[in-house]
Write a protein that binds this DNA or RNA. Structure first.
Lengths: 222, 222
DNA sequence: AAACACCAAAGTTTCCTTAGTTTTTTTAGT
DNA sequence: ACTAAAAAAACTAAGGAAACTTTGGTGTTT
């Protein structure tokens, strides 16, 4: 009787194992490898092997490597966006919010081998461009909202041109990922980004905002 | 009249008994083969043959191979849990208990071909994930109880963060099964796990606890 | 800068095995 | 003898492993 119950539960669970699952698995699995080793050094054979499927099956689900990289990047971008959107509703103020953005960026940079950005930019320039424009639409809008929120709350300087600041910030992030300026062998990507992020914040806050920011920084250090 | 009634009851009873018996046999029988040869190399034909039933009968009781792997894993997990729960009531103290856990783990590893874990993780990732979360709920809780018991009895250090230790221990076990770190061709899985288990115990005990642990170790060597 | 050679990896194809299903044969019970 | 159930055998489709072909990135030479 009890045993039959368990068996029933497991049967229902098994039904989810279908087509969408395979594609999702492929994206997640390839993302793990790309994050760890970059794109160029991860072969399609490796991905198939990692997933326990044949190359044939992989190609039945994915047109080619280029498409896979796109899908992976889109997936990651969507996730990132989703995480950002959650912050608007769960943070107390603009400083808390921008501080959480920094924390999230830190986590992302920790789990991604910097060679990933290099590889995509160089070998998959279309993918790079695709997300370059999406970035301005989505994340850019998000930054503008945060800036406006901070101005309203009195934490950011009221004379900020929010559009200029948005463009500046987004270019700064991209610029700091550029290995021409900050060669990987000389600079720690995480350090560079965090340095520039703090610099940006310090440039936009009021006295009141700075005090609050220092508090959050202190809280994070403990 | 009465005779006809009894006969009906017995028929219903034996039908239920037969059904449960077959499914149980299938799980136990497939578990024997999976433990010995892993999952991938054990075919449904082999299982049917091993059990002396036809493939048709096998599929009348089990939806598909995926479901069978899940059922087998659940069955094994339940057994493991049951065995663990018995230890709380039959052991004299926390050291005795954790020592018995080590003994049980040793027995389990002895009877399982390591390729089983590899196969499930790679080819049945959903099954792997299913039991990953269950692990933290059940076995994690059990470890915390043992740690709290040991602290109360004076065998474990009172400043232990039991939650941190639980998560650490569970991740350690999983990590030691990872063939990326410990290739099967170079390492004996049992040795690795026992080494790490002893190291873990030595890290949590008081002086008093260590003396007692040494006693149990000595007793086991004889 | 262009041409060339090399070779690993992307992408494709082939052959085989196995999961799952169906049909045929055998067995057991009445 | 009859029938239902189970076993054995045959079948189909899908997926895996391996082999094969093509491509593109890189290095060398002119």
């Amino acid at each position: 009787m009890v045993f039959a119950k368990v068996s029933l539960v497991l049967s229902v669970y098994s039904l989810e194992y279908n087509y969408m699952e395979t594609k999702e698995r492929i994206i997640e699995g390839s993302m793990e490898l790309f994050f760890k080793y970059g794109v160029r050094s991860v072969t399609m054979d490796m991905i198939a092997s990692h997933l326990g499927i044949s190359k044939k099956t992989l190609y039945e689900n994915v047109k080619d490597k280029n498409t896979l990289v796109e899908m992976m990047a889109q997936h990651h971008f969507d996730q990132e966006q989703h995480d950002l959107e959650k912050l608007s509703n769960t943070t107390e103020n603009a400083i808390d919010e921008i501080h959480q953005i920094a924390v999230q960026m830190k986590q992302m940079i920790r789990q991604i081998n910097p060679i990933l950005f290099f590889d995509i930019k160089r070998y998959y320039p279309k993918v790079w461009q695709l997300f370059d424009s999406q970035k301005y639409d989505c994340i850019g809008g998000y930054i503008i909202n945060n800036l406006e929120r901070g101005i309203k709350e009195g934490y950011y300087r009221p004379d900020l041109d929010v559009k200029v600041m948005m463009i500046f910030k987004m270019n700064q992030v991209e610029w700091a990922f550029d290995t021409d300026f900050f060669p990987i062998t000389e600079f720690n990507l995480l350090d560079v980004q965090m340095q520039l992020f703090e610099h940006f914040i310090r440039g936009i806050v009021t006295k009141k905002g700075l005090e609050l920011f220092e508090k959050y920084k202190e809280h994070e250090a403990n």
